[in-house]
């Protein structure tokens, strides 16, 4: 199972964290500090796995962002690399060639997509298309609610004129 997902920038800034196992706030910041120190300092040609406190951390760098997932020792590291790539591709499709800034200003969207991909630290969907469909359906729901709200406030505004 995936214990947590971590997105860290080249500069060590955290862009997304998702915890599937219980960590206290203190532990979380310690883990982030420790791991970003190790991962950012690794050379480019080394393998994408780190053995860390009895777990394995699988990471991959995309442009200026490191995507890290912490898994159990017995899990399939190569598959987790695929999951990371899967997530990146879905982000890419959603934002249209995603960049770090997209993830900063729309961090909640990145979380929504991750929630359609993983639950309880396990993969829930292998089709990028399905994820995209569900996300856009929910986005439409939000849009519709917003429109409704603004039309109502228009009506109220007109009525009170």
């Amino acid at each position: 199972m995936i214990h947590f997902v971590l997105l860290v920038s080249r500069q060590g800034k955290v862009r997304l964290t998702k915890w599937y196992s219980p960590y206290t706030q203190k532990e979380r910041s310690k883990v982030i500090r420790e791991l970003s120190g190790v991962i950012l300092n690794r050379g480019p040609k080394l393998c994408n796995f780190i053995e860390w406190r009895g777990y394995k951390v699988v990471y991959k760098r995309y442009a200026s962002l490191y995507f890290c997932m912490c898994i159990d020792e017995a899990d399939n590291e190569l598959e987790v690399l695929e999951i990371i790539h899967h997530y990146v591709e879905i982000l890419d499709r959603y934002f249209g060639s995603v960049c770090e800034l997209d993830l900063i200003f729309n961090f909640h969207k990145a979380y929504y997509i991750l929630d359609e991909l993983l639950i309880a630290g396990e993969l829930q969907e292998s089709s990028k298309k399905t994820v995209a469909r569900i996300i856009s359906a929910q986005d439409q729901l939000v849009e519709a609610a917003k429109e409704e709200a603004s039309s109502i406030s228009n009506i109220i505004a007109q009525a009170t004129k």
Partner: peptide, 20 residues
């Protein structure tokens, strides 16, 4: 009652709280 509120509410719940 609204979906947008629930959506962000659940996201916040998962992010700011943990099971303990």
């Amino acid at each position: 009652p609204g979906f947008p509120e629930k959506r962000i509410g659940y996201l916040g719940l998962m992010l700011l709280l943990d099971e303990r």
